[in-house]
Design a binder for these strands. Structure first.
Lengths: 199, 199
DNA sequence: TCCTAAAAGCTAACCGTTAGTGTTACGGTC
DNA sequence: GACCGTAACACTAACGGTTAGCTTTTAGGA
C-alpha cells in the first residue's frame, strides 16, 4: 500500500523541508542560512529536519539517488549485447545537459561557491562510482577484472564532473568518452584483442 | 635568511601540534580525540592550532603539499622528450608503495574508518588533479586540449586512489596505467596518429 | 633602545549535529 | 469502535569544530 496517510504526510514534510531550504539558500546564500532558519521556515523541529536529511548539504542534493539509479540502470537495463561505453556515453550526455540547463544554473552557481557543497558532491560521486563499478562487474557479458571495472566507473564519473565544468559540455563528453573507450578496449583480461584474434 | 629564530619556532610549534595530534589519534581513535585535547596536549591554544592547520582533518594530511609537488615535478622536471605517462606511472607506483607500506598501515586504517577523513582526502585529490592538469597543460611537448589534460590528470589521481585500495597495488598500477596510456594516445588533437601520418 | 609586526593566547561565542525524552497520530488488530 | 504498537515529530540541552575580537609576548630591524 503505497498511499497510506502516514507515508504521504512524511513525503510532504520532506518535500516541504527540501523546497524551503532550496528557496532560502538561493535567496540569501547557502552560508547565510542556518539549519535553524530552514527548520523554522518549514515549520518543523530541527530534529525532524535531520531525520529526513543526514546533513545540511544533503538538503541541496536531494535527489542524488535518482542519479545513482539512472547510472546503474544504464548498465543493468541495456539491451543484450549492447556495448557498454556508448550506452554510458548517452546517459552521461543526458545528465550533463540536464545540469547545465539554464534553469539549473543558479543552483550550480551556489554549489560551486560553497566548499562544503563541493566536497559533499565529490564524496557523492565516489559513492556513485562504486555502485556503477559493482553494476559493471556484475554483467557477465563484460569480462574484466575488478580493478578494470572500478577504473572505468571512476573514469565515467570523472567524465560527468569534467564535462559539467567545461566550456562546451557536449564536445567535452565526446572527447572524454573517446578516451574512455580506448581505456576500456585495452582492459581485456587476456591481451588487447577482442574475442578471437586468429587469421 | 631562511633560518630566523621566528621561523624555526613557528615550524617547531607546527610540528609539535602535528605529532601530538597523530599520536593521540592513533592512541585513542580520531573521533575520540577533540581539538581541545590536541591543543592541551601540545600545550598551545586552540586558536594557535587553527592558525597552523585549517581543520581537524588537515592535522592528519599534514604533508599533502609534498604529494602535490612530487606530482607536478614529475611533469615539469622530467627529461626533455621523455614520455609523460611512463614517468607518471613510476611516480604513482612509488607513492602507492609508500602509503601501502606496513609502517603507514595504522594511519590509513584510521583514515578509512573515518568518513570525515575520507571526504577530506577526496577533495584533496581533486586539488591535486587540478594542479597536475595545469602542469600537463603547460608542457609545450604535449599538445592536447585542456579537457584532455584535465581528464588525464583525473585518471592518474584515480589510479593512485584505486591502486592504494587494491589487493595487489603493484599489479593494479600496471593495469590502470595501461588504460591511461591508451586514453592518452587517442587524445591527440587531430586524429589518432602520433606526429606525422605517412602518405 | 625602541618600534613594528608576527606569533601565540584567552574568552566567548556561532553553527551543525546528536542524545535524551516526551507527545501525537496513524495503521493494523481484536 | 476501542486498543496498542510504532513511526513521525517536538523540545531541550548539550557536544565539538571553528571563528571573531582582543590582549600579550617575542623576534628582528631602525
Amino acid at each position: 500500500m503505497p498511499t497510506g496517510r502516514r507515508e504521504r504526510k512524511k513525503a510532504a514534510t520532506r518535500q516541504k523541508i527540501a523546497d524551503t531550504a532550496l528557496r532560502l539558500f538561493l535567496e540569501r546564500g547557502y552560508d547565510a542560512v542556518g539549519i535553524r532558519d530552514v527548520a523554522a521556515e518549514a515549520d518543523v523541529a530541527v530534529t525532524t529536519l535531520f531525520s529526513h536529511f543526514a546533513s545540511k548539504e544533503a538538503l541541496v542534493f536531494e535527489q542524488d539517488d535518482d542519479f545513482e539509479q539512472r547510472l546503474t540502470q544504464t548498465v543493468t537495463g541495456r539491451a543484450p549485447h549492447e556495448p557498454l561505453i556508448p550506452a554510458l556515453r548517452r546517459e552521461i550526455q543526458a545528465l550533463v545537459r540536464h545540469c547545465t540547463a539554464d534553469s539549473a544554473a543558479p543552483i550550480w552557481r551556489m554549489i560551486d561557491a560553497s566548499p562544503a557543497l563541493r566536497e559533499y558532491e565529490e564524496s557523492m560521486r565516489l559513492r556513485h562510482a562504486e555502485s556503477l563499478a559493482t553494476a559493471i562487474a556484475a554483467d557477465p557479458d563484460l569480462s574484466r577484472t575488478t580493478t578494470a571495472c572500478r577504473t572505468i566507473a571512476r573514469f565515467v564519473i570523472d567524465a560527468y564532473s569534467l564535462a559539467r565544468e567545461a566550456a562546451d559540455p557536449d564536445t567535452a563528453v565526446d572527447e572524454i568518452f573517446r578516451m574512455i573507450e580506448a581505456a576500456w578496449e585495452v582492459a581485456h583480461p587476456s591481451g588487447n584483442s577482442v574475442g578471437t584474434a586468429g587469421p
